[in-house]
Design a protein around this nucleic acid. Structure first.
Lengths: 342, 342
DNA sequence: TAGAAGTATGCAACCGATTTCAATACATTT
DNA sequence: AAATGTATTGAAATCGGTTGCATACTTCTA
């Protein structure tokens, strides 16, 4: 391996001390303009590259931020990550990304890796099976900020960036009721996850407020993947009387249901009205377009990252500690899958 | 900030030298079993956390790999990244990810950041406007392996992991011809990108081999986004005679075209047969399902990462240098959007 | 039993940038 | 001219793990 150019080499070259070189390179004000230029010039000429390990070792910060998501290959998550990357890069932070594959075990292992990598802060969207946050303890103890987004743990002292899931599904349910639905089925994911637990609440409240009685038979938890439609529709068709409204907790699954229903000759929205969640591309592409909740994923990434970085840069540690929850605006988008007035 | 536990503290605690502690912690064979256990035990008790900066500084490697993609929020890219993350984590490497936003300028800046972050290797899918690879020179000079995937530069000495784009579109074109299409339009992205340039070749070759004459009017370059359908269909309808086959270089755009066509009462596949590219979720969800090229994105991520890491671990540097291109299997999937026999 | 060979551990010099504490040079004020 | 202030620069310690070489101690061979 070739020899690295260090500040010592530069110092020798320009006849100054490493101290001054270091200061010049980091734009310290106490270096004469002329000196600084001379040093910068020499550094460029010699092909100097700062050694971040030495720098991080001494400064005790890595200028990198860890992100743990359940899965990288999800339309929602990748959009969040895109937002995060944009802000982080602007602020001079690197992004170290890993996925928990929805497994607590992997989340714990990733958390350890992030801790050992000495990230300056951590952004997490919980795995489905995570029911405690013990494994973040090392971060708390060292006052390394941990910020959750989308899927946040219950009863904790961490900041979370979320949408109001309860309100979102409340609105969607109320909308279906207004469209004349009498029996609304709600399909959601693992109820250990706040996101789905909150939505279920919204569903219940909306029913209650509109004079309907909650019936547990109308709630299914299910994988919300591309193949889920067949399974869900089978279950729906066994119900009597047949449901006329369907709230599905993501658009992929909603689209899959739509296809399964069409295949069986059930008309959407006439026989059964559908509302999805996320406002993914797919909701705008299937026929009929699926009503959904607009989830500001990219924006969520930006906001989460911005807050974390502000916290790091300002040394204004109270801000984040005092902020418990940042709620972003989500909104019901009504499309043809639930619009019965034409 | 609380004091960190270092190997010196452990050494003092167990009455040995830091050297031995260091060796014990990294499973060096020249430490007695008993001693090692004593040290590991003490380390655990004292809450020791190794300092990777110190370690990296001394060892001159970061155990991290950089990835630069055009965009994080793309179904294709996020799937590739998922595959990469899996392999990297298994092998004990961190992933530092950034996006070039299709801009050469940003790609250059990201490359610099990756270089300064001293990644042990770099994986790149080029930005659309990148026409040279000067900015990777520092990596080449330091023998840090750079491996391209999907979008690879022309005429270079780097390894690339790709599919055979020419063959893929050749097959798709031949398929459309077999279905009776007489005038086939090909819509693709920026021709500076090898991916699209190669596909254009495949299109031309297939026409030629089947006795058709290539006509530049039948080729459009276009943004391949969700809204592209309207623009593309408008152009198609201006052609005379009206085309009866359409090859679109990604499924999102193909789906968008499909919708624009249906809106105008043009029947697919009867009036116009469509083939997309990528085998994204959306191609399986719209009506009719879109024929497409299966792109093994997750697998591509795994293969690219595996090759890079093998190269790093084995010190078997020739392997990668001698391998110029790894081509993964892609395949035409025929669905209803181009299947006229029923 | 001397000497060889092998095992276990330690010393001290790294890796390269940062930062505290001072020193020096120069300018300004009284 | 002396005193005070200010702008520049430097010496040396530090961050914490790794590693070449040296040393102490066993065990084995001739």
């Amino acid at each position: 391996m070739k020899k690295e150019i260090t500040i010592y080499d530069i110092a020798a070259d320009v006849g100054l001390s490493p101290t001054t070189v270091s200061r010049a390179l980091s734009n310290h004000p106490r270096v004469k303009e002329v000196t600084r230029n001379k040093i910068l010039h020499a550094a460029k000429n010699m092909g100097y590259q700062s050694n971040i390990f030495a720098s991080s070792l001494r400064k005790r910060r890595s200028k990198s931020i860890g992100v743990i998501v359940p899965r990288l290959n999800s339309a929602f998550q990748s959009s969040v990550l895109a937002g995060m990357e944009k802000i982080a890069t602007q602020a001079g932070y690197n992004l170290i990304i890993s996925q928990s594959m929805e497994s607590l075990e992997k989340e714990i292992s990733n958390t350890k890796i992030m801790f050992n990598s000495r990230v300056d802060g951590l952004l997490v969207s919980k795995a489905g099976t995570t029911d405690n946050i013990e494994h973040f303890q090392p971060f708390f103890q060292k006052d390394i900020p941990v910020l959750f987004f989308d899927r946040v743990p219950e009863n904790n002292h961490c900041t979370g960036v979320v949408i109001n899931n309860t309100q979102a599904i409340y609105d969607a349910t109320a909308h279906l009721i207004k469209e004349g639905c009498k029996r609304i089925v709600h399909v959601l994911g693992n109820l250990q996850i706040n996101v789905y637990a909150d939505r279920l609440k919204g569903y219940k409240y909306a029913l209650m407020d509109h004079g309907f009685v909650f019936n547990a038979d109308n709630v299914f938890t299910n994988e919300l993947d591309e193949d889920s439609g067949e399974r869900i529709v089978e279950k729906i068709l066994k119900l009597n009387p047949r449901p006329d409204g369907l709230l599905v907790s993501n658009d992929t699954s909603a689209a899959s249901c739509l296809i399964a229903l069409k295949k069986r000759g059930i008309k959407v929205p006439e026989d059964l009205a559908i509302v999805g969640f996320n406002n993914d591309l797919i909701s705008r592409m299937v026929e009929p377009n699926i009503s959904t909740i607009n989830y500001p994923s990219y924006h969520m990434g930006e906001v989460a990252m911005k807050n974390l970085i502000n916290h790091l840069d300002d040394e204004n540690q109270e801000i984040l500690q005092k902020t418990n929850t940042i709620t972003l605006r989500s909104a019901l988008i009504i499309r043809d899958s639930s619009n019965r007035k034409h």
